Simulated scan of single mutants.
Amino acid sequence: MTPHDAPRAPLHIAGTGTALPGDPVDNARLGKAFGIDEEWIDLFVGTRTRHFGWDLATGEIRHSLADLCAEAAHHAADAAGTDPADLDFLVLATTTPDRLLPTTANEVADRLGLDHLPTYQIQAGCSGAVQALDLARALLAAGHRSGLVVAGDTTARFLDPGRSPADLPARELVNYVLFGDGAGAAVVSAQPDGEALAVRTLLHRFSGRGRPPGQIIDWDGPVRRDPGRQMLSEDYKAVEEGVPVLAGEIYRELLDSVGWTPHDVDFLLPPQLSARMTRRITEHLGVPAAHEVSCVADTGNTGNALPLIQLDRLLTRLPHTGRALALVVESSKWIRAGLALERTRPREPRP
């Protein structure tokens, strides 16, 4: 038996929450703000709306990542029927922290009134929420009773409303139509409390050895500031070709790990790069009967938040026993991640 095959500690999702800032921004408004053809946005990404924590006209930040993560965490605690003061740890995953120090994780803990507990911040892309859940499982195995997993991203540092699309290389322009801001959260426990959604298996594998990154997000201080430096770059062609293949590998590995057949899966949570890419992935997988749970068409690509937002939507659609697979691909340096989920008893109505 390899370490990857060893028995894992129990992990249950007791409650989830989502935070999306402001009103949804449709493609017409986005196209007008950035000087991008609305029809091209519709055809290229297929996403209808997204949310931004900053003003499209002025660039003024109105919702920080800490704001969104704290709001999502409150919703998750309410859904779980848990007082945040009873939580034993906090793990936060993001690509875009508000600042390098203090960490956004500690800012969120402070806003939630938490103190004297371990906090962790994971620097990651779209797979960060799964990484955070993996760390949470280890903390529960070490004796903690329950904790909070939060994940989110914001775009204010990288999308400049003053830039003309004519000035942007294609590898950077694509990000102006893909991304939105948001956060998701989950209260986790070792016992099947609350919603009683059990994580039957959790997959997290680095798969990028010798492979060029599909996305680069740069970061520099004032000493090395270079006005011409490209801070956000995506090889969309490599992502478009690679993600469906990796999603298929994740799907098969999750099924094998829990001994399910495709017909045992009631819900599928596919990768959420864009609405168009999600359609391509689900067609590639050909899952026989599973209902799709997606959010990207309405939220845009919210990075680390996506898997937790999907989980939040899943719980509203899973009132009875059922099984689900969540597939997550991080294309920055190619990470395969995912969850096999099962509700073992019907959800009890809230008083």
Rank of each mutant, 00 (worst) to 15 (best):
P7D: 03
P7S: 02
P10F: 08
A14W: 11
P24E: 10
A28V: 01
A33C: 10
W40Q: 10
G46Y: 06
F52R: 07
F52H: 14
F52D: 13
W54M: 04
L56C: 07
A57H: 06
A57M: 02
A57F: 01
R62F: 02
A66D: 12
A70W: 07
A72E: 03
H74A: 11
H75V: 06
A76E: 04
A77W: 10
A80W: 03
G81D: 09
D83L: 02
D88L: 04
L90S: 05
L92Q: 08
A93D: 01
D98R: 15
R99M: 11
L101S: 13
A105E: 08
H116T: 02
Q121W: 01
C126L: 10
S127T: 01
S127E: 02
G128V: 02
A132E: 09
A132N: 09
L133D: 04
L133T: 04
A138D: 15
V150R: 06
V150K: 06
D153S: 07
T154M: 09
F158N: 11
L159M: 15
L159K: 15
D160G: 11
S164H: 05
A166D: 14
P169R: 05
V174W: 05
L178V: 03
L178F: 04
G180P: 01
G184T: 10
G184R: 09
G184S: 07
A185G: 03
V188C: 13
V188Q: 11
P192H: 08
A198I: 00
R200W: 01
L203I: 01
G208Q: 08
R209C: 00
P212I: 00
P213K: 00
G214R: 07
G214S: 04
D218S: 12
W219A: 14
P222T: 03
V223C: 01
R224S: 08
D226N: 15
P227K: 10
P227F: 12
G228M: 06
G228F: 07
S233A: 09
E234W: 00
K237I: 00
E240H: 15
G242E: 07
G242V: 07
G248A: 12
G248Y: 06
I250D: 04
D256Q: 14
S257R: 14
S257L: 05
G259Y: 09
W260Q: 02
F267H: 13
L268M: 10
P270S: 09
P271V: 02
Q272V: 06
L273M: 09
L273W: 00
A275R: 14
R276D: 00
R276Q: 13
T278N: 14
R279I: 00
R280K: 15
H284P: 00
A289E: 15
H291L: 13
E292G: 01
C295N: 15
V296S: 07
A297S: 15
D298S: 13
T299W: 05
G300W: 07
G300V: 02
T302E: 09
A305E: 13
I309L: 15
I309Q: 13
Q310Y: 07
D312W: 09
L315N: 12
L315Q: 14
L318M: 15
P319V: 09
A324F: 12
A326W: 01
A326C: 11
E330G: 14
E330F: 08
S332R: 13
L339W: 07
E342D: 12
P349E: 08
R350L: 14
P351K: 06
